[in-house]
Design a protein around this nucleic acid. Structure first.
Length: 301
DNA sequence: CTCGATCCCTGGACGC
DNA sequence: TGCGTCCAGGGATCGA
């Protein structure tokens, strides 16, 4: 499940061999995850891929319109356009020799001018792809929050501590921070000893500062280890990541907490599976679970 | 503003 | 072996 470190890993892999290549042709399979499939077919052929960037969980292939001397197209995309790619849950974007048969669930093939094909495969098609000119891309990106790796302590506190939503929901909310998903939310909350159901506004200043620090630390380490491969994440070279070996909470239900040996719990918080240590990450007052327990105790008396 | 529910989709795990 | 059922999860959307 590609989150910031996994998408960054893919971006770095693609950067090794994709920039400078020209797209010769486009072949589409299923297209229900593409904003405007016809736009890809119409505009991608002939474009040069100038750069590969990451924005939150998105990959951005920066395209330049036409080689010098060729006529600029009339629809205004000559100023610059991008292919926006979201890997969803199971998306992969990687180059293969064009002669090599396509993997199952390959839905987009971009034939490059060096005999390779940049292929997008995605069994569940939870991803997204869109061809966007500069203005449209800019409009898309304004909806997103701060980059968790770059956010200052002040901005982080401002975005979190003013909110009455659960911290887990805030970490997952791409308009608050862009790029954090379920794994790294749980890992950072465990490291910061904060219960996922705590409200943003309930965090103390030092807690918010700690959370930002451990989140950045975890994301950076995960990038170095080329991400977490839980079920099917593979980078642009088809290789799995290694960070799943360092998970302290995510996926560890019933196993001992690395700090205190207490069994890790799994609960649904903000609609998502959340793994946490009930001892290191105490439930907030008013938490449903805690409230229920208290009512039970009262009844017993 | 925040919440839960629902949908999207397929493969893998599990039960019989 | 081969079904059926449930579940995972990011994100959009809708109603409470």
């Amino acid at each position: 499940m590609p989150e910031l470190p996994e998408v960054e890993t893919v971006a770095r892999g693609l950067r090794q061999s994709i920039p400078g290549r020209r797209i010769l042709s486009v072949t589409l399979g299923k297209t229900d995850f593409i904003d405007d499939p016809a736009a890809l077919e119409q505009h991608l052929p002939g474009k040069k891929i100038d750069a590969v960037e990451r924005y939150g969980k998105f990959l951005l292939l920066r395209l330049s319109a036409v080689p010098p001397g060729e006529r600029v197209s009339a629809n205004g995309d000559a100023a610059g356009a991008s292919l926006l790619v979201h890997l969803g849950m199971t998306g992969q974007l990687a180059p293969s020799p064009a002669a090599q048969p396509c993997e199952k669930h390959t839905h987009v093939c971009l034939l490059l001018d060096d005999g390779r094909e940049l292929r997008y495969t995605d069994p569940r098609r939870f991803g997204r792809m869109a061809y966007l000119v500069e203005a449209a891309l800019a409009a898309e990106l304004t909806a997103f929050g701060a980059d968790p790796l770059e956010v200052s302590a002040e901005e982080f506190a401002a975005r979190i501590c003013s909110r009455h939503a659960r911290i887990k929901a805030l970490l997952l909310d791409q308009s608050v921070l862009r790029g954090v998903g379920n794994i790294y939310a749980d890992e950072s909350l465990w490291r910061a000893k904060i219960h996922p159901a705590r409200l943003g506004a309930q965090l103390s200043g030092p807690q918010a500062a700690t959370l930002r620090k451990v989140l950045q630390d975890i994301l950076q380490k995960a990038i170095v280890m080329r991400g977490s491969s839980i079920s099917d994440f593979l980078d642009a070279n088809g290789e799995p990541g290694e960070y799943q070996r360092h998970h302290r909470a995510y996926g560890r239900e019933g196993k001992g907490c690395y700090r205190c040996k207490t069994a890790i719990l799994r609960a649904i918080v903000a609609g998502r599976s959340s793994y946490f240590c009930p001892k290191c990450q105490p439930a907030p007052r008013g938490d449903k679970r805690g409230a229920r327990r208290k009512r039970k105790e009262k009844r017993r008396k």
